[in-house]
């Protein structure tokens, strides 16, 4: 039995295989419509989510399976003080696979230590979000046709942005990928991630200016400054409008730039950009369903 807690647990070959399956699902969804017939997915979401939870559920339904679960801690026994370990011991008797989102970092790892069925980390606080990374990788692959030789800009909250941390880890495996890390000083990428990049000899630069960075980028990954990651409302208000992508900033960008965003967006991408051919974030959200279908099949051992 295998869980997915951190994107680093997947080999490059396994990621390539998942992307290949996702692309095959996109080209022929009917072929997969009964692959998980009779199987159940439990979505244990202790924190609000739209895309992740609904795309997991849609993924399982489109594979012919069923779904049960809760969508906030208030609707579960967590509100009565039940531990993650106990909840998972119980729920793993009700479902064949579990997707868990939790505000505390490491909660899905704890779940995987006690579960009888595979656990998928659907986001643990500001830490990891491997299925978002798979979604991002599928999007990059569909947009660019490759992972190598890319300049990847990541902009916004790079400190608490779990999608950023996971994406850096995954993209750093490929040849000649350069990262441009665009953030205010208070929201820089944590030191442990930079240490790993240094250790692996991966090129990166840190900058505060989106305008200066944008001309060289092949990918621009925008993120939201998340209110829920701040203990201090003042800090949130001071930093939330730091980077807003609009058409004037995009003027200096490459014609084939791909703009990604894990969504939800608040105001960091102007709505005027939505119709620009470089905007990929709504396709990205759709890709999330297909890659989760591929992942569910893999972890359930369905061919």
């Amino acid at each position: 039995m295998r869980s997915l807690i951190d994107i680093k647990e997947l080999s490059t070959q396994e990621i390539d295989e998942l992307i290949a399956v996702a692309k095959d699902i996109i080209s022929d969804p009917a072929k997969y419509s009964e692959k998980c017939k009779g199987k159940k997915l439990a979505t244990l979401f202790y924190e609000a989510s739209t895309r992740t939870r609904l795309s997991f559920e849609a993924a399982m339904y489109e594979l012919g399976g069923n779904v049960l679960g809760f969508s906030s801690a208030d609707n579960s026994s967590a509100s009565k003080g039940e531990s993650v370990a106990d909840t998972v011991r119980v729920c793993s008797g009700y479902a064949d696979i579990i997707a868990m989102r939790h505000p505390k970092e490491g909660a899905p790892l704890v779940a995987s230590m006690h579960s009888l069925v595979p656990i998928i980390n659907a986001g643990d606080g500001g830490h990891n979000h491997p299925t978002q990374t798979l979604t991002d990788l599928l999007t990059i692959n569909r947009e660019k046709g490759r992972f190598e030789n890319l300049v990847v800009g990541l902009c916004g909250d790079l400190k608490f942005g779990r999608t950023v941390h996971s994406l850096i880890g995954a993209m750093a495996r490929y040849n000649n990928v350069k990262f441009v890390l665009i953030s205010p000083d208070e929201l820089k990428v944590p030191s442990y991630i930079k240490q790993e990049l240094d250790k692996d000899g991966v090129e990166y630069v840190e900058t505060r200016s989106l305008e200066d960075a944008i001309p060289e980028l092949d990918i621009l990954y925008m993120t939201r400054v998340q209110r829920e990651r701040f203990f201090n409302e003042e800090d949130y208000l001071r930093l939330k409008d730091t980077y807003i992508l609009n058409m004037s900033k995009l003027e200096k960008a490459k014609e084939d730039l791909s703009i990604l965003h894990p969504l939800p967006r608040v105001n960091e991408i102007s709505v005027e950009i939505d119709n620009d051919k470089r905007a990929c974030y709504f396709e990205q959200a759709l890709n999330g369903k297909y890659i989760r279908m591929a992942l569910i099949m893999k972890l359930l051992g369905v061919e």
Partner: peptide, 21 residues
């Protein structure tokens, strides 16, 4: 000591650290 870590709330969870460097 990370207040966002699951060890801050999960009952009797062992604190385990690994030597990474």
């Amino acid at each position: 000591t990370n207040p966002r870590c699951i060890t801050s709330i999960e009952q009797e969870l062992p604190n385990i650290f690994k030597l990474t460097d």
